Amino acid sequence: MKKLSFLVVDDSATIRDLVRQSLKLIFGTSDIFMAEDGRVALQVLGEEEIDIIISDWNMPNMNGEELLYQVRNDPKLAATPFIMMTTNAGRDFIIMAIQLGVTQYIVKPFSVNELETKIRASINILNRRREKRYAMPAHVASLQVGQKVFSGQLIDLSRTGAAIAGVRFDPVIGLFKVCEVELKLLDPNGLESDTSLISGLFGRIVRLEAEDTFHPTSLAYHMALYFHPGTMERDVERKLNNLIKWLAGKAPDVIAES
């Protein structure tokens, strides 16, 4: 694996230097760029190839939220992991930041071990996003969260996750909740008449987004799920892999990296 390059953004020179020293200690890299605010950070991002951004949230000139917006809306930077440093540990604030597109967050003060954990988690997320995801016909996904069951339309699928639309929002649905998923899909081996149920597939909700509609009473949501390969039953993993192989050979639409 190539050495990672980092951009550290903070209006405090002391914090920038501490993070730089920690990164050198953890990853042995000298490709660490510094910026005192979002404006300078954008200049660096325009000149250098950056693998991971670590940014404070509250800064003068251009704060972390404004920088994040620019990063997520630039096609060349949109997939770059963005780790937020903040002194605000409030749950509502953290959820808001994640919904805006923060990859990971870390609350000041933090240890070197905590920083390493967040960076490695960000790398894993980036690798998952690079998985090919296959567009689906109108298949049905059934999700059980707690004691409630919801139905939606499966939009795309990979070995590590799925996107589902049309799920009606309910208070029991929340970020990071674990749900059991059943996928009603074409049987890749043709052993059953029309559909095959992949059940016992557990996913963690990692994104919730209201559907784009002008209807004032709509409660329909898009959601993204993450499947942790290490926790799958062997038979479930086999069925999912068979389905992915079938889609790779049959489905013309491959959704680009995001």
Rank of each mutant, 00 (worst) to 15 (best):
E47Y: 11
L183I: 00
V9R: 11
K245G: 12
G28Q: 13
A79E: 04
S199T: 15
Q144V: 07
G146S: 08
M1S: 14
V9K: 06
D74T: 07
A41S: 07
K184D: 15
F202W: 06
L68H: 14
M34C: 04
E116Y: 09
E180C: 04
V40S: 04
W57G: 01
M223N: 06
S5A: 05
R91H: 15
A121S: 13
I54V: 15
Y69L: 04
L183P: 02
M59W: 02
A248N: 14
T217G: 09
Q104D: 02
E65I: 13
S12K: 13
E180V: 01
D31A: 12
H139K: 05
R159L: 14
E233T: 07
Q70R: 11
I123F: 05
S111A: 08
I125C: 12
G90A: 04
V19E: 00
T80P: 08
L68F: 01
Q70F: 07
Q153E: 07
A248Y: 13
Y105E: 04
I164T: 10
R133F: 15
I15F: 01
F214V: 14
G166R: 00
G161Q: 11
C179G: 05
D31T: 06
V236K: 00
S22P: 11
L100K: 08
A41R: 15
R120W: 14
V149L: 09
I119Q: 09
P229E: 00
S218W: 10
L197V: 10
G90I: 07
R159F: 07
K250M: 03
S151Q: 11
T213G: 13
H228C: 04
A78C: 13
P188E: 03
I54C: 11
F6M: 12
A220I: 11
D11F: 10
T80Q: 10
F110R: 07
W57M: 12
K250C: 05
S218I: 12
I95Q: 09
R72L: 07
I255F: 03
A141I: 01
P216Q: 13
Y134N: 02
M34D: 09
L201W: 04
P229L: 06
A141T: 09
R130Q: 09
D37E: 04
S151K: 01
K3C: 08
A165I: 09
D92H: 00
K3I: 05
P171M: 02
L201N: 03
P109V: 03
T160E: 09
